[in-house]
Structures are given as structure tokens and as C-alpha cells.
Design a protein around this nucleic acid. Structure first.
Lengths: 192, 192
DNA sequence: TAAGTAAGTGAGTGTTCACTCACAAAACTA
DNA sequence: TAGTTTTGTGAGTGAACACTCACTTACTTA
């Protein structure tokens, strides 16, 4: 990944956030980059490669950042809380990643993009699962429910918050509302 | 809504399910209807109107069907269960409605479509809210959490199941997995 | 400094798209 | 049956799209 490629996927992200998936054209990316359409093709083979690069960058970056945030000495509940707090503040700084993950119009166009989106979700899933499992093992969380299902409930709630935030044009306060929902989720799955 | 219009939105739904949002073109709808492109314009002013008609039909239909399914004499938990069981079996028969609700590529193109999608979600929200509120009032459900938030958690989990089902090309068993998640959700929010 | 490569350009190409229009047949109505 | 409306068609339009190509300019390096 060259610097120029990173510039391009950032421009693509900006456009995706502002103009949605139908606005994500080579022409618009080129304009945003302040050079010609054809120049884009010096750095990426085509549009699909740009989208794939965005998604793969997001997955890698998310994995790396989140691993650092989780402190194994914390309680499972605290780990969940800091994981999501981090994730929310990250998306707040880079809302285009929310756009790209939720642009499932992309999804239908190419199996490779489909897989890349799945990979992003899988990274998230794999970060959550061990936390939940530990919490269930040490009696912190409800263990009447399979860990997999618990993870899906949590991810579903989080995704809906992100979706609503995106639908609002990123105007609503995701930090307040998102963290509140996570707080509620934790109190829901806790044994008490 | 004429018969022909209903035929067209059904064709559009079929195409949306099979070819995704990028496949939803006037040409494809016309082919599916077995007549020419221009004939479509005898029944709808344009593509946007077709999509709006689909969404509004879904919202109205969902409202009407779901109201019938909910038996006020049942417990809140049972009401939730039958509501979702009905919804899942309905989507299983009409998977294109899952496609249309999740095609947020549509969303960005027009404020009217945006509002129509929001309306579908609102209908669902308004169906769930009173059930949750009653359940909290009569001590059946956890009332440490605001009803609104509880509704969002439930809807989020349900939407994620639908999304995964759609991503699988509607091959996974939504009836099994979807109902299991709802079962888990209910056990999670129940006071015991 | 000469040669090779990387990065950018302007003018295209072919395709697909939503949509229009003059026209025709069919169905309804007086 | 004559007149009108509804429903369909085929040919076409202009715009947007991803992508190509011959060419130039700038940078690197032997």
C-alpha cells in the first residue's frame, strides 16, 4: 500500500460518507484527489480494487487497534465497555468506515467485496467471542445462552446504532447513545 | 394501486432478490413482466415511484398482518414470540422485502426513499414498544432498562439475523436460527 | 547526463441507464 | 359503430459510467 493509494482510499471514504454509494465514482474520487480520472488507474487496477483496499484496511486496522485496547486483567464487562467505547470513538473520527460496512449495495456486485465485508464482521466477532466466553466461564455473564448467540445479539444492537447514526447523516450523538446501549446490554447479560 | 402496479412491484421484488440493487433496472423489470421498457412508464412515473410503492406496500402490509397476530391475552413474552415467528415466516415467503429494507444503497439516492425505509422501521418499532412496555409494567421483563433501548436491542438482533440470511443468499435456515435468537433474547430480558 | 520509470493528462470508447415520443392496437363507452 | 381512453411498442436520446490509450512531464538512478 503506497501513500498515494492510502490517499485515494481516504478520498473514496470521504465521498462515500458524503454522497453515498451512488456517489462513489472514479470521476468523484479523481476530483477529490484533484487530478484526472485516468490518474486513478495508475494506482488501482479498477474501482473494485479501491473498495477492497478500503475494506481490508479497515479489517486489519480494527483488529490491531482493538487488540491493544483490551486489557486481559479487566473484568469481561469492562473489556466489552472499553472495546466499544474505543470502536465508537474511532468511527466518530472516521465515519466513512461506517458507510463502507453498511453499503451492502456493494455487496451484490462482487463476491470478493462480499467476502471482504464478511471478513470485517468476522474480525469483530472474533474480538467479542473470547470476552463473552471468559465472562461466562467466570460467572460474570449469563451462561444459559450460547456464546455465539450472545455475540450476535451484541453485534446486532451495535450495528443498528451505527446504522441509525449513518441514517441521521452522522448528526446524532453516537458517543452518548452508543455507549448507553452497550451499558444496557452489559447489564442485561450480567448475572446478578 | 392497480393490479398491474402490484404485478410490477412483485417483479421488482423478485429482481431485487436475485440481482440485488444494481440489477434493479427498468429493463430487467420489463423483461420480467414480459413487456417493453416503455410500458412500465404507463404504470409508474419512474423508478423512484416503483421503489416507494414497494416500501409503502411493505409497511402497510406489515402493520396490518402483525396487528392480527398479536393476541392481547397472551403474555408479553408469547406476544413477542408469535410476532417474530410470523415475521420470519413471512419474510421466508417474500425474501425480496428483506432485500429492499436492507438495500441502503437506495437510501442515499432520494430523501423520499430514505423516509419510506424509516417508516418501515418505525412500524416495526411501534409494534414492539407496547409489548415491551406492558411486559415491563406487569413485571415480566427487566425494567432497569428503558423500553426504547430494549426495543432497539431486539430490533438490532433481528436485523442482523435477516442481514446474515440475505448475505447467505437466503440459503441458511432463518426459521431455525431466527426463532432461536428471539428465544434467547426473551430469556435475557425476562425477570426470573 | 542519459535512460528508464513512475505519475499524471485529455480525449476518447463502448456500455448501460432512465426516460421520451410518435404511433398502433385493444378495450371501453356513447 | 364512432369516438375516446387505456395499454402497449420500437426506436431513439442524452447523460453517466468504468475504463483505455497515446502522450507528456517529473523523478530516479546508473
Amino acid at each position: 500500500m503506497t501513500k498515494r493509494q492510502l490517499d485515494i482510499i481516504n478520498s473514496a471514504g470521504k465521498i462515500l460518507t458524503e454522497g453515498g454509494i451512488s456517489g462513489l465514482t472514479i470521476k468523484n474520487i479523481a476530483t477529490e484527489m484533484q487530478f484526472s480520472e485516468s490518474a486513478i488507474y495508475r494506482h488501482f487496477k479498477g474501482k473494485e480494487e479501491i473498495i477492497l483496499a478500503m475494506l481490508n484496511y479497515l479489517a486489519d486496522d480494527m483488529q490491531e487497534r482493538c487488540e491493544k485496547v483490551i486489557d486481559q486483567n479487566d473484568s469481561a464487562a469492562l473489556q466489552l465497555k472499553s472495546l466499544f467505547a474505543h470502536q465508537i470513538s474511532y468511527f466518530k473520527q472516521h465515519p466513512h468506515f461506517v458507510s463502507v460496512v453498511f453499503s451492502d449495495g456493494l455487496l451484490e456486485e462482487s463476491e470478493r467485496i462480499n467476502n471482504a465485508i464478511r471478513r470485517v464482521m468476522k474480525v469483530k466477532h472474533n474480538l467479542l467471542l473470547p470476552i463473552i466466553q471468559n465472562g461466562q466461564l467466570n460467572g460474570e455473564f449469563n451462561n444459559a445462552i450460547e456464546s455465539q448467540n450472545l455475540v450476535e445479539i451484541i453485534m446486532g444492537a451495535f450495528r443498528l446504532q451505527m446504522f441509525k447514526w449513518k441514517s441521521s447523516g452522522f448528526h446524532s450523538d453516537i458517543e452518548d447513545h452508543g455507549n448507553a446501549i452497550i451499558e444496557n446490554l452489559i447489564s442485561l447479560i450480567k448475572n446478578n
